[in-house]
Design a protein around this nucleic acid. Structure first.
Lengths: 190, 190
DNA sequence: TGTAAATAGTGATATTTGTCACGCCTTTAA
DNA sequence: TTAAAGGCGTGACAAATATCACTATTTACA
C-alpha cells in the first residue's frame, strides 16, 4: 500500500469501474489517518462520525458486557471497512469499541461525506450496497458456525478462512472472537 | 394486508418517499405468489431466482448439515425480505432451504428485476442499501448474543425482540434457531 | 374417523466448556 | 534495566449442554 489513492480506487473498481475524475472525486471525500497499536479509534459512548477503510494494520471491534468482559465482534485488516455500523448509520453513541491490534493506516469517511458520495455518484451507492450485502452474508456464515460447530470446528474454520489472524492476533483474542474461553482454546490444540 | 400494492408502497416509503408513478413502476417488477404451509420456496441445490417480500405468513431459512441436522438461520414474517442471499446475489445454487411454517403470501422479485429497479430508480438502490445495512446490524446483534449469552438468555432476548414467534413456531424450531437442543430448551423453562 | 407424524416433557448419563488458581515466559514502558 | 502487564499453558473442579431413551399428547390428513 504505497499509494493510498490508487489502493482505494482499485478497491472500488472491483465493484464498479471509475473514470479518473470519479476516482479523484471519491478520494477527495476521505481523510488519511494513522493510529498506534493499542489506540482506540472508537470509544464506547462517543459519537461515531466515521467509517474506516483500512490500508494497513489490524483492528478489533469489541463489545464490553455488564461484567466488563470483552467480546470480539470482528477483526478487520487491509482492504476492509470497519466501524460501529449501528452507531454510524443511526448517528448515535457507540456501543462498541474499535481498538488497534497493530499500528494502522486508514482512510476515514465521515457520515456527511458518505451521504454526499451516495447522492452525487450512484456508482458509490451501488458500491456500498454490494459491500453491505457481502457483510450481511459474512455475518450469516458466522451465525451458522455457531449453530453447526463446536469450538474446535469454529477455530479450524477461522484458520481456513483467515489463517493470517493466527500469526497476528493473541490466542486470547481469537478465543474471544470464537466465543470460547482462552483456556478451552488453549487445550483444544495442545 | 388487504392491498398488497399499498402494503409494499408503505414499506418502501418508510425509507424513501415515492410519487404515484414511481410506486406503480416499482410494483410492476414484483409478482404475487402464495405458498402452503410446509411448502419449500427455495430448495437446496436449485437456482435462487427471487428475493421475497412477505405480505403474510411465516417462513424459516434453514441450513442442513452433513449429519442431516437442520439449523434455522432466520425466521421471516410479514414486512420482511427473505431469500438465500448468498445464492441470490451471486446467482448460484442454494445452500439453504426456505420453508413455510404457515400459509404465506409474498411478492417475489427476480434478480433481473432487482437489478433493473436499482438501475432505473436510484431511490430503490438506496432503499435496498438501507435494508441491507439493517440486516447486517441485525446479524451482528445475533452474533453478539452467541458471544455474550447462554441458552436461557438468548431465549429471553428472542422473546423480547419477537414474542409472536413463541405462539407461531414449535419449540423445536426455536431451539434450532437459538443453537440449543430441544431438550435443553424444554428444561430451561419448566 | 383413525392412524401416522409431529410436538413436547423428562430421567439418566456423557460430553463440552467454563472458572479459578497457579506458574512461567515475553513484551512494554517508566 | 527493572517492574508491571500481558500472554499462555495446565490441573482440578463446576456448570452448562448434548445425547439417548422413553412416554404422552396433539395435529395433520387420507
Amino acid at each position: 500500500m504505497n499509494n493510498p489513492e490508487q489502493f482505494l480506487r482499485n478497491h472500488v473498481e472491483k465493484v464498479v469501474p471509475l473514470t479518473d475524475e470519479e476516482a479523484s472525486f471519491i478520494v477527495s471525500h476521505f481523510k488519511l489517518e494513522t493510529f498506534k497499536k493499542g489506540q482506540f479509534i472508537i470509544e464506547e459512548g462517543n459519537e461515531v462520525h466515521n467509517v474506516y477503510f483500512l490500508l494497513a494494520g489490524l483492528v478489533k471491534l469489541v463489545y464490553e458486557d455488564q461484567d466488563a468482559k470483552k467480546h470480539i465482534v470482528s477483526f478487520a485488516m487491509e482492504d476492509w471497512w470497519e466501524t460501529d455500523f449501528q452507531a454510524f448509520y443511526t448517528q448515535s453513541k457507540a456501543t462498541l469499541l474499535l481498538e488497534c491490534i497493530e499500528d494502522t493506516i486508514a482512510y476515514s469517511l465521515s457520515f456527511e461525506n458518505f451521504e454526499k458520495l451516495c447522492n452525487d455518484l450512484q456508482k458509490m451507492e451501488r458500491f456500498f450496497l454490494r459491500k453491505s450485502i457481502a457483510g450481511h452474508i459474512g455475518s450469516q456464515t458466522r451465525i451458522l458456525s455457531f449453530l453447526t460447530s463446536n469450538a474446535r470446528e469454529r477455530y479450524e474454520q477461522l484458520l481456513l478462512k483467515n489463517s493470517s489472524l493466527l500469526q497476528r492476533v493473541p490466542k486470547t483474542s481469537l478465543a474471544s472472537y470464537l466465543g470460547v474461553s482462552r483456556e478451552t482454546l488453549s487445550r483444544l490444540f495442545m
